[in-house]
């Protein structure tokens, strides 16, 4: 089902260096290294610097992780402390099972 050549484009929205944002980024890096080695790009958007970007991705909550590619678009909000949920949300878990 999933093409292995897919690159996971991930965007993490934060607002300054709050503890939650720092935790979220740390967790995200860890999961990606573990499950998506060399197949991911993480872009961190600080809304305090670029507030106009909040509208485009419909950001309400902070932190929010947006997976744009591969489809479908998914959003994961929170500090990403629950690994299971994050992996399901990023469509990593099912893809792994098929392999």
């Amino acid at each position: 089902m999933k093409n292995n050549d897919d690159i996971w484009e991930l965007r993490l929205y934060v607002a300054g260096k709050t503890p939650k944002s720092v935790t979220a980024l740390k967790n995200l890096r860890q999961y990606c290294e573990e499950h998506l080695k060399d197949k991911y790009v993480i872009e961190v958007v600080d809304l305090l610097v670029h507030p106009q970007l909040a509208e485009g991705d419909q950001i309400l909550a902070i932190p929010t992780l947006v997976k744009k590619v591969p489809e479908p678009i998914r959003k994961i909000i929170g500090d990403l402390s629950n690994e299971e949920k994050v992996l399901v949300g990023l469509n990593i878990r099912p893809a792994k099972k098929i392999e």
Binding site: L47, P51, A54, A61, I62, P63, K75, L80, K85
Partner: peptide, 15 residues
């Protein structure tokens, strides 16, 4: 939307 852990609505405030 998937919720995992703590968050706030700062995004809405900023917007």
């Amino acid at each position: 939307i998937e919720e995992t852990g703590e968050y706030d609505l700062e995004g809405l405030f900023i917007r």
